[in-house]
Each structure stands twice: as structure tokens, then as C-alpha cells.
Amino acid sequence: MKKHAVIWSVVLLALTACANLQSGQTFVAKQYHHAVVLEQQHDRAFAHPHNLELDEIKDLLAQLVYVGESGLVSKEAPMAVFQAVEIERLAPSLQQALQQASPDQWVRFVSFGQKQGILFSNSRKTEGVMFVAPDSKVNIAFSFINAKRAPSETSAMYHQYAKLSPLAFDGSATPLVVDKPGLQLKKMAGGSPSSMWLEADMKTFEDHLMVEDRYVAVVLPQTTLSLPPEATNQQASAETNAPSMTRRQQQQAIKQQLKFLKSLFEDGLISSKEYQEEKATVLARMNK
């Protein structure tokens, strides 16, 4: 009986360890706020492994915009897919995954965004895939964008990935908005553009990207959540290795935040009082 109990214990431990990783998936990053895996696709061929510059990945992620419901006045408005802190965490893992991927693997990712005042009103999650097609274009297709997280979804390390391929989606309540040279929505089989699948000619994209639109590095904030020990260690490591900002970069970041606040106010998404309060908060950082 004891022998059988030991065997069943081993089996249960093995099943628990594999429960959060589907067949054909290999982890590249498994952290509290994001996870990235390599996933086999036997019916597709990719231009992998591929070396994409980290700054290019950050620029691309920073330009991803979708139409979603604003939590301020409950109306649809253009919104950023990723927050700056998400980009800092996710981009290096995506770069590493593309460098490690084989021609029959694409990169699947999930990113958790925390409540950020006027930008997000709830904890969110964004999931998708990234790959480089044989024509060298970088593709990103989303399963969902900034969907609400359930209270039980406490860590990206244990995220259950969507089983349906994001390439199959032909409609969404959170469609992407593309307005930069080099970026376009993928044409579906019927000829209509996909709402959640974007392809990027990176050379054209980078050559035409305005200086003020380029991504500006930020310092990752310290989390206020109660993390498990392994996640706490990973978070501390990420914060230690986070790039520091020069005075010029700080000024550019503040300028972008002020422009964003102004656009929210002009579009009626925040009140005059909220605009003035947030503006004062941003300007106060210039003296620090």
C-alpha cells in the first residue's frame, strides 16, 4: 500500500508541474507579471531563430493601440495595448524567445497589467503570439487585449493559455488601430483586415518613426503586491537591472505624459479637476 501511495504521489506531482504548460510548449520566461513560451506549430514555418534589436521591439510594442472602453466615462477610445512597465518586462523575454525559436515554433506570451489610476481601473491581462514570417515581417496576433483578470489569476507564472489560435480571430471588441508606416493589419482569407493580427515591416517602421514617438525607457516601480518568494527574487532582479533614465529621457517621458493627459481632457475622458491634479503630479517629478 505504501508503495502505491508513493507512486500516486509522484504521478500527482508530475501532473501538477505540467498542468500550466500545454503539450509542445517550452518556457522562456516565467515571472510574476509576464510569461513567454515557445510553442510548436507543425503546419507553419517561420524565419526563426531571428535577432530583433531590443529597442525595435520596445518601439513596436509602444505603438500598439486598440479601441477599448474607457473606464472613466464608459465610452470607446484609443488606448495603449501595453503600459511602459509591461514593455520593460516583456520586451527582453520576447527578444530572447525569438533568438531561441526554431523554424516550427512561434512565441506565445501573456502580460499582466496592474491598476494604474486613469489608465487602467482593474487588473488586466493581454495574451498573444509573436513570430517572424518567411517574408521577414514581424507578426503579432492577440487572443485578447487588456481583458479583466479574475481574482484567482494572481500570477502570469500559472496562466492557462487560450487553446484557440489567435490567427483565427476575424472580429473583436478590442480591435487594433494602425496608423504608422510599416504597420498593417493582416488580410484574412476573405480579404478583410484582421482586427487582432498585425504585421510589421520593421525597416520601414523604424525609418519613418518620429523621434517623439520612439519608446523612452522607464524605471520599473516596486510592486506593492504580496508575492511568492521566487517571484519576489525575480522582481528584485528586474528592478536592479532596470535601465536608468537620463535627464533628457526624463523630460521626454514627462512631455509624453502631459500630451497624453491633455488628449484625455480634450476628448472628455477626464474632468478639468482630474486633468489639473494629474498634470500637477507629473510636473512635480521634474523637480525630483
Rank of each mutant, 00 (worst) to 15 (best):
M1N: 11
M1P: 07
H4R: 12
W8N: 10
V11S: 02
L13P: 04
A14L: 12
T16D: 09
A17N: 04
S23F: 14
S23N: 08
Q25I: 07
F27R: 13
V28R: 02
H34C: 11
V37G: 00
E39P: 04
H42W: 11
R44W: 10
A47C: 05
H50F: 14
H50G: 03
N51P: 00
L52G: 02
E56H: 13
L64I: 08
V65H: 07
Y66E: 01
S70F: 07
L72Q: 13
V73H: 11
S74I: 09
K75G: 03
A77D: 06
M79D: 03
F82C: 02
Q83L: 09
V85R: 12
V85F: 09
V85W: 11
P92R: 06
A97C: 04
Q99H: 08
S102T: 15
F112N: 04
I118C: 00
F120H: 13
S121Y: 12
S123E: 10
E127G: 05
V129S: 01
M130H: 03
M130C: 10
V132Y: 03
A133Q: 14
D135G: 01
S136R: 13
A141N: 04
I145V: 09
I145Q: 07
K148T: 11
A150C: 02
E153Q: 15
T154K: 13
S155R: 06
A156D: 00
M157G: 03
H159V: 12
Y161R: 02
K163E: 14
L164P: 01
A168E: 11
A168M: 09
A168R: 09
F169N: 05
A173T: 11
D179Q: 10
D179H: 14
S195H: 10
M196E: 08
E199D: 06
D201F: 03
D207E: 14
H208G: 03
M210R: 12
E212C: 04
S226A: 12
S226Q: 15
P229K: 10
P229F: 09
T232Q: 15
Q234C: 06
E239P: 01
N241Q: 15
A242H: 06
P243N: 06
R247W: 10
A253W: 14
A253I: 09
S263T: 11
L264S: 00
E266P: 00
D267W: 05
S272Q: 14
Y275Q: 02
K279E: 01
V282T: 04
V282R: 04
V282P: 01
